[in-house]
Simulated scan of single mutants.
Amino acid sequence: MIVPEVLTKYNYGEWKIYMKSYLLGEGLWDIVKGIESKPEDPTSPEFKSWREKNAKALHAILISCEEEMLSSIQKRDSAKDAWDHLALMSQGRTSPIGEENMAEDAVPVTRYRALYQAAFWGDWKRTKSLLDDDDGNVSSSSSLITAILLPSWGTVLHVAVSAGHLNLVEKLVDMMTPDTISTITRTCPISALNLAARGGFTKIAEVLVKKNIYSLEIPDDTFGLIPVATACRSGHKDTTRYLYAVTIKETLIQGDRKCGATLLNNAIAYEMYDIVIDLLSHFPRLAIAYDYGGWTTIRVLASMPNAFPSGGLYTTWQHWIYSCAPIYNEKDISSLDMGTTNKDQSSIEAFYI
């Protein structure tokens, strides 16, 4: 074999080193890198030399790839094109995990990296083999199950959820305890359910809630939002409606009512008026609460004129009526009876208290 291991989705970095070494030794690297370009005259001796080298380099690359990678380049007739395409395909597949970011654990860094890649691509067979202990079993207390593979990605479950791999999530959840799927740490400040809410993965959210219903009440450390508010903020209507149906409503008004206000305001913004009506029927004071961004419901409504008939497109007679309506200038407004205005505001606030 030219290389110790054929190219797969997971080993491009190592494969590239061995492949480059071989091509350099055979005098073919300049062909692959395009330094020795294809001559224009097909009858020249230079063209014949290039064609032979290109064929050798392409052959070496083709026989050094596993079937899935081979299928993506087998119709290419240029070694450079094949090489560049493999590099493009493999961008992002090499985990950005560095040793300085790894949890201090006895498990080798290379195993964290491999586990991250397997989970990211939804490869259950490889994920399980990496999680298996010496007896071929996966324990819920395994250090790899709960290890933070990368601070910005979290555990193997976080990686699988973020990538939207439902089947992999189901299998991982089956081998985990309820506590382990909802734990957040300083280096991983968001729960798996909040990630599913952020990505709009309703089916994954159902799996996680079934395992631990209390994860519905766990806020993230970034905005302090529970999953249903996160889903609504991200505009995922199906996920929002599912999470709203299973979330204990009183959770939304705990503390400063920020979660409830965020849910309400974003439900208005994304026209989920069924949720808006239900929320306000239970908690009318949410209408004057501030969401995570400091917005109130009145401000949200003011920014959506098309939500009201008068804010839409007018017919001819409607334009005529509005053209005849009186318009106040700044002097008129400043002369209004502020005592009456303050009295009206007090009445409004008293209604919600």
Results as ranks from 00 to 15, higher is better:
263 L>G: 00
263 L>Q: 06
263 L>Y: 02
265 N>G: 15
265 N>Q: 14
265 N>M: 07
266 N>A: 03
266 N>F: 15
266 N>R: 11
269 A>R: 05
269 A>G: 13
270 Y>A: 06
273 Y>G: 14
274 D>G: 07
274 D>S: 09
275 I>H: 11
275 I>P: 13
275 I>M: 14
275 I>G: 08
276 V>N: 07
278 D>K: 10
278 D>R: 12
279 L>D: 02
279 L>I: 00
280 L>P: 06
280 L>S: 12
280 L>A: 13
281 S>T: 13
282 H>I: 07
283 F>S: 08
287 A>V: 07
287 A>L: 13
289 A>G: 11
289 A>Q: 06
290 Y>N: 07
291 D>E: 14
291 D>Q: 04
291 D>V: 01
291 D>I: 00
292 Y>N: 05
293 G>Q: 07
294 G>F: 09
295 W>N: 01
295 W>S: 11
296 T>R: 10
296 T>F: 02
297 T>Q: 13
298 I>C: 15
301 L>H: 03
301 L>V: 01
301 L>Y: 08
302 A>P: 04
303 S>I: 15
303 S>H: 07
303 S>F: 11
304 M>K: 12
305 P>W: 12
305 P>Y: 08
306 N>M: 15
306 N>R: 15
307 A>I: 09
308 F>I: 07
308 F>P: 09
309 P>N: 10
310 S>G: 15
310 S>F: 14
310 S>K: 15
311 G>R: 08
312 G>K: 08
313 L>M: 02
313 L>V: 05
313 L>R: 03
315 T>W: 13
317 W>C: 03
317 W>D: 15
319 H>N: 08
319 H>P: 00
321 I>M: 10
322 Y>R: 14
322 Y>L: 14
322 Y>K: 13
323 S>R: 07
323 S>T: 06
326 P>C: 00
327 I>C: 04
329 N>Q: 02
330 E>G: 05
331 K>N: 01
332 D>P: 04
332 D>M: 01
333 I>S: 00
334 S>T: 04
336 L>D: 13
337 D>L: 01
337 D>V: 00
338 M>G: 04
339 G>D: 15
339 G>W: 10
339 G>K: 10
